[in-house]
Design a protein around this nucleic acid. Structure first.
Lengths: 132, 132
DNA sequence: ATTAGATTTAGAATAATTCTAATTCTAAGA
DNA sequence: TCTTAGAATTAGAATTATTCTAAATCTAAT
């Protein structure tokens, strides 16, 4: 994940920085956190530009937006399609990387009559830490 | 779904009204829409009370909150656990009522190490209307 | 009737996100 | 290289969604 790799996407400097911040983050970030981190790399960047860039990168498929019950959207580098688990006790959000059972999308499409594009799920439960 | 049935839950008048509005709605409603409809049934009700009631009813398990990429939360009568499909073209949100493949929760729990409580998914795709 | 606790109310406050208008950048053509 | 049109950025205001606050009201149990 070199700078070069990001630059080759033909992004503006601001969008590069936003993408970099998200890719370098250990956790999922809010727009506000992205802004704070981006400002360190590119002090002049504005809040509106962060939002614009997040929208742009989302539409271009480089990142994903996730939303839950409370508060702000979280942004997720999008290395590959994946699902999420959220702890009902402490609220931590983690990624799940697994294949879906073969018939899942097919079933969902059949029941809804939608032409399916993607499917993602959220598991709610107790995280390993809270479960001790 | 008589008034009686709702009253027996031991709710305040305001909470009854909020629950009734959500149960009577054809579609998923935003808090704002719930407020508008509730005001017709109980003119003095305040916005804060609608939010308080939504939170209360959600915690009591009578309704569910759903959030997607843009804008406000939607509220969902909770007749039974169910999933959602959202149209990537027109944005319409519909319910999917189906059983999950048996191994889905189990797999997700195994991969995340969570103690599972519930799982719900969102199918993204093109709705029948947009697909014509 | 009294009272404690929960609920509601109105409106202010906060938080999240988008909009606006002016400015700057960029890439393509003259 | 100069010009220019369109896109992107900026600062800050505006909007939208939600929560908070403090006072008033209701409720159920003494």
């Amino acid at each position: 994940m070199s700078i070069r790799e990001i630059q080759d996407l033909g992004l503006t400097r601001q969008r590069e920085v936003v993408l970099r911040v998200i890719r370098d983050a250990e956790e999922h970030l809010t727009a506000n956190e992205v802004f704070d981190n981006a400002k360190r790399l590119l002090p002049g960047i504005s809040f509106a530009t962060v939002y614009n860039s997040l929208r742009f990168l989302k539409e271009a498929g480089h990142i994903a937006e996730i939303r839950f019950g409370n508060g702000a959207s979280l942004y997720d580098r999008k290395l590959a399609r994946h699902d999420h688990a959220i702890c009902t006790k402490c609220g931590v959000l983690v990624d799940i990387e697994m294949e879906h059972p073969a018939e899942l999308v097919e079933l969902a499409a059949r029941y809804s009559n939608f032409k399916p594009e993607s499917l993602d799920f959220t598991l709610r439960g107790i995280c390993p830490d809270c479960n001790k």
